[in-house]
Design a protein around this nucleic acid. Sequence first.
RNA 1: GGGGGGAUGCCCGAGUGGCCAAAGGGAGCAGACUGUAAAUCUGUCGGCGCAGCCUACGGAGGUUCAAAUCCUCCUCCCCCCA
Length: 404
Amino acid sequence: MREQFDDLLTGCVDALPSDDLLHRLCAAQVEGRPLRAKLGVDPTAPDIHLGHTVVLRKLRQFQDLGHTAVLIIGDYTAKVGDPSGRSKTRPRLDDEEIAENARTYIAQAGKVLDMDRVELVRNSDWLAPLRMNEVLKLTSVTTVARMLERDDFSKRYEQSEPISMVEFMYPLLQGYDSVAVRADVELGGTDQTFNLLMGRTVMEAYGQRPQSIMTMPLLVGTDGVQKMSKTYGNYVGVDDAAEDMYGKIMSIPDGLMGPYWTLLTGAGHREVEDILDRLASGTYHPARAKRDLAARIVDLYHGLEAADGAAAHFDRVFKEKDRPQDIEELPIPLSAIQEGRIWLPRLLVETGMASSNSEARRLIAQGGVRVEDVVATESTAEFSVDELRDCVVQVGRRRFLRLK
RNA sequence: GGGGGGAUGCCCGAGUGGCCAAAGGGAGCAGACUGUAAAUCUGUCGGCGCAGCCUACGGAGGUUCAAAUCCUCCUCCCCCCA
């Protein structure tokens, strides 16, 4: 039991109230009743990345220990939406988009969870029919002062950034979800702490025992700075090809290996501690550790064979700086040909390897463009169609194209 | 309802009449180096067949030889008071 508990706490930032979860686990064992572990996700984006899997893995751990994973698709809360930021022009998600996102989300979540044993529900089932008097009851469980205690609200308030009224509704609705599914414990990122705690308040107001809450750190993206997010371009998608996944993980700063091992591999606390100890003592080479990490994660989503293939691909392209095996092929665009000649900058633009003539000139000036392994030095370079046929054009270290 | 502040390049943010395609930082991109696409360093970072030209500092007009900078109106955002 203690061992189980320690594994559950691995990677967690907080489990509140302090001994509540342990008590529940014990009681569950004694009574032979599994705990109901709740995770709510809003299907606001079509793809999920490793950042989303942190909390999914934790939920999976609950499953593996025989508890019930309750996955709430926030198809209603997604529509309430988070109106922060400069979103006035952003079109509201319509029902079809949400449905589509939910579909892909569930499919991708299945790579982490045992979907056969997940209790899958949608919160529109109970939120959509709510009547005004219910909503009013819900809003009366807390106060504006408490809302403003919330870290991000208070920060925004100080910095004179807008806070919309519906944003006040959001934690209440999420809390109502907990009531609806009778959650024993709710999981979430640390950014969800307030919402999770609000769930306790709401449950209490509805005469239920307030849930235990468990928060997981926000995964830092491959840039090592910001949280993993598609908008920052520092994400590793669950559906990324094995080679991409491997390469992206190899690109993380060394300091991120600890969190990644802890949060993304599903390794138990003993294994993680061992790895980190050996890294700290220098008996485990960081390059080796990162390769193992990358392989481990690719294995989780693509299998061992793909992981080996990705590692080999990585060595070939980045270590030996060789050409990759599969180079995209493209016919020489007709639009790049003028009077039978092909001007190099135009070729780069027309093939999508540079975004503008200026960009192309820049790349050439910086020695970043190669044609058949020969560095192009002049932005005035011209070729004939025959000269370029079957040639490999390379921009930077990782963009290749074979002309046909 | 009244008063005040603000809108600058992908993002943050300086700039209050010419020296501004616009400081600085971040991201990105390229180069060097390496254990990797880490770290570090260097360069670059609106467009144009580019030693020149064009378009740009929320929008529309105006003043001026000259405007991101001054004036007018408009749009949006924020704060304070009520």
